[in-house]
């Protein structure tokens, strides 16, 4: 039971981490909390489900398909909505992204219906590693999270796009002074962050199996808790906060009862904020 709880916790934590890191970099450049972030996780899941069910594609092909669809939607949202949030007070961002979330969620419900769907795909054969039996899909999730975080760290420190993301999140006025095209960076970061959320959704679907239009809300809400605990804008802090939350939830579900799991994130968040208003991994260097 203990190893199960740890394995489940790390898997769930990796899922959260992929969603949350997107939100945290978007927050970095826009200083706006993306209330629609969980919807992109949901859209990723739906994109892959649609590929498998309607187009009869294998899971492995439906992954890039879903990511391309979500990136396109994110691009549209970025151009129409997120770009306008530059230099706006934070409430504007909350309300606008809440609007985006309502639209995306209910458009999906309108198209596909509000009922739960079954996700039929992925690699769910159990394998044994070091005496622990777990499905291939879970290993894939954890490995994908580690690889993506490694790549993100490299990107923000070594590439021009990454440095520009950091620049926009540190000083938007200085960006204008040195001629950074801030709207392009904002839209690019938004598309990247949303695609990461979608990737998380696609990778998790075989494990969670069921999907429905409103599934993004609880992910968004948990992601808030993670990014605040991890220190908003902090990439590696996000990974650790996500793992800690995954483990806590897993232990609470195993030892106290499944019904308490969803309150863990916010109880932890409120405790953390009470003790450390800057978050668990608050340091000046954000990326």
């Amino acid at each position: 039971m203990l190893t199960d709880a740890v394995v489940n916790g790390i898997t769930a934590g990796s899922v959260y981490a992929l969603v949350a890191v997107g939100m945290t970099i978007i927050f970095g450049v826009l200083r706006a909390i993306n209330f629609a972030h969980g919807e992109f996780y949901m859209l990723g899941t739906f994109g892959a489900w649609w590929g498998i069910e309607t187009l009869d594609l294998p899971y492995i092909v439906s992954i890039p398909l879903a990511l391309i669809i979500v990136a396109a939607i994110a691009l549209a949202v970025g151009v129409l909505v997120m770009k306008r949030l530059i230099d706006q007070p934070f409430q504007i961002g909350i309300v606008a992204t809440l609007g985006v979330s309502l639209v995306l969620q209910n458009v999906i419900i309108l198209i596909f219906g509000g009922a739960y769907k079954m996700f039929d795909g992925g690699w769910i054969e159990p394998v044994e590693i070091l005496g622990i039996s777990l499905s291939e899909q879970r290993i894939l999730i954890v490995v994908a999270a580690l690889v993506i975080f490694g790549l993100l760290e490299l990107m923000v420190h070594r590439t021009r796009f990454g440095k520009t993301i950091r620049a926009v999140s540190q000083n938007i006025e200085a960006c204008k002074v040195v001629g950074v095209n801030v709207p392009v960076v904002v839209i690019g970061t938004f598309v990247l962050g949303c695609t990461l959320a979608a990737l998380s959704g696609v990778l998790t679907a075989p494990v969670t199996v069921s999907l429905y239009g409103g599934m993004g809300t609880s992910i968004t809400v948990k992601t808030f808790a993670i990014i605040v605990m991890g220190g908003v804008g902090n990439v590696s802090g996000t990974l650790f906060a996500a793992w800690i939350l995954g483990l806590m939830e897993s232990f609470v579900a195993s030892y106290l009862g499944l019904q308490f799991r969803d309150a863990v994130a916010f109880t932890a968040l409120i405790v953390v904020l009470t003790l450390l208003p800057g978050g668990l991994f608050s340091k000046r260097e954000r990326f």
């Binding site: 309300v95 609007g99 639209v103 969620q105 419900i109 309108l110």
Partner: peptide, 12 residues
């Protein structure tokens, strides 16, 4: 669902 889409667009 239509009402919520309308709400969402309205918010934006």
């Amino acid at each position: 669902d239509l009402r919520m889409i309308a709400y969402g667009l309205l918010l934006i």
